[in-house]
């Protein structure tokens, strides 16, 4: 009768998110907390995940498959980047509620885990250490993207 007082069994996704760069510095207990906040979504190839101009509510981590970041209508199909499994996209939504700068679309059938801005804000309040570790990984990821972008621009013929 008092079975509801027992803890819940470990989610099978836990071993998967352990491998993700964003959560690489989290301990097992911390991972369990984060896992409880993630929303798993599945998209078919060509399905739109979010549109340019929409106000973002969540950051996405690709669990499987690939995601295309593009600007429809721009030259060359507007292709900006392709996000492989394990990488993240839409991270600016976590930091502020600015409009999305591009469209995200499933390049192939994919599964993504979404961490919403509200849940991340809650994490900052309740689990400051976890939020700091995620924020640090996020900053590293943004830094890497910035350097890569800078190098691409430098190598472009004048």
């Amino acid at each position: 009768m008092l079975g509801f007082l027992k803890g819940r069994p470990e989610h099978p996704r836990l071993s998967q998110i352990r491998q993700l760069h964003l959560f690489a510095t989290l301990g097992p207990r911390e991972l369990r907390v984060v896992d409880g906040l993630l929303h798993e979504r599945r998209y078919l190839e060509d399905e739109v995940i979010f549109d340019e101009g929409e106000e973002g509510q969540a950051l996405y981590v690709v669990l499987s498959g690939r995601v295309l970041i593009c600007r429809p209508g721009a030259p060359d199909g507007g292709r900006i980047a392709e996000i492989p499994a394990g990488a993240l996209f839409g991270e600016l939504a976590l930091l502020e509620g600015t409009p999305r700068t591009a469209q995200a679309r499933a390049a192939e059938d994919c599964a993504v885990a979404a961490l919403t801005r509200a849940d991340f804000s809650g994490l900052v309040e309740t689990h400051g250490a976890i939020a700091s570790k995620i924020a640090l990984q996020l900053a590293r990821d943004l830094g890497r993207k910035l350097v890569a972008r800078h190098l691409t621009l430098e190598m472009r013929p004048q």
């Binding site: 929303h39 979504r41 998209y43 399905e47 739109v48 995940i49 979010f50 929409e54 973002g56 509510q57 969540a58 979404a114 919403t116 509200a118």
Partner: peptide, 10 residues
């Protein structure tokens, strides 16, 4: 549905 996910979260 996926299309309404972020609005529902909001």
């Amino acid at each position: 549905p996926n299309a309404f996910f972020e609005r529902t979260i909001y």
